[in-house]
């Protein structure tokens, strides 16, 4: 008997005397917490992102390219990683050399890049979370991981939901997802939170108003 059959057999014997099917699960928890206008939901997102030490900026589509170039210059970035499907206009104003992530790029090559600019799939206000799903404007998972400076653009209010349940509804489980709530952190020293371990230590979020 192989281990698959052995384990499944053990499970079935273990459950032989378990009671029959139970009542269906009632999901009587909330779909979102509290009542907010759309604008208040965006404000809450900004507040919670900032609470976990993300740097939050707000602009409109006209100001976006200028804001991005300003952030890269302030950081002194000598190179910026760009996912293949990023809106051309976002980096139109910057002369910082662009690095395109190719499948054959090695992690060590990515490690030499200073910054990365991406879009996101969904942002969750109640938890201050950005979710990336590997779409062309977000790129492979590793490009938002290895560089130390991540600029993430969120279209508001279109990409913003209130809660975790609403966020999951919008996401496709078949895609590899990365949920990001603030920069990399740890609670491993005396159970106290310290920002900045392996992931990007600086997370800048741009909330860009839709026209």
């Amino acid at each position: 008997m192989n281990s698959r059959e052995r384990i499944l057999g053990r499970v079935r014997r273990a459950l032989a005397d378990a009671p029959g099917d139970e009542a269906p699960l009632s999901r009587d928890y909330l779909r979102e917490h509290g009542q907010r206008t759309v604008a208040q939901t965006v404000d809450l997102l900004a507040e919670n992102l900032a609470d976990y030490r993300a740097l939050v900026h707000r602009t409109d589509s006209d100001g976006l390219a200028g804001l991005i170039v300003g952030l890269l210059e302030k950081r002194g970035s000598a190179s910026v990683l760009v996912p293949p499907g990023l809106d051309e206009g976002w980096l139109a104003a910057t002369g910082v050399p662009r690095v395109t992530d190719r499948a054959e790029s090695t992690p060590a090559e990515l490690d030499r890049v200073d910054s990365v600019v991406t879009a996101c799939a969904v942002a969750i206000a109640e938890t201050g979370t950005l979710v990336l799903d590997g779409s062309p404007d977000q790129g492979r998972r590793r490009i938002t991981l290895v560089p130390d400076h991540h600029i993430c653009v969120v279209r508001v209010p279109g990409q913003v939901v209130s809660s975790v349940p609403q966020g999951l509804e919008r996401l496709d489980p078949a895609r590899p997802l990365t949920w990001i709530s603030g920069p990399s952190a740890t609670s491993d020293i005396e159970l106290d939170r310290v920002e900045g371990v392996h992931g990007p230590r600086t997370l800048e979020v741009i909330l860009v108003g839709e026209d």
């Binding site: 976990y52 492979r140 590899p176 949920w179």
Partner: peptide, 21 residues
Amino acid sequence: STAERMNPYTSTWTGTTDEDG
């Protein structure tokens, strides 16, 4: 666990993805 609204990173993956991971 860490008393956070959300932990900094959550990864989900389904099998393998071409050219990612």
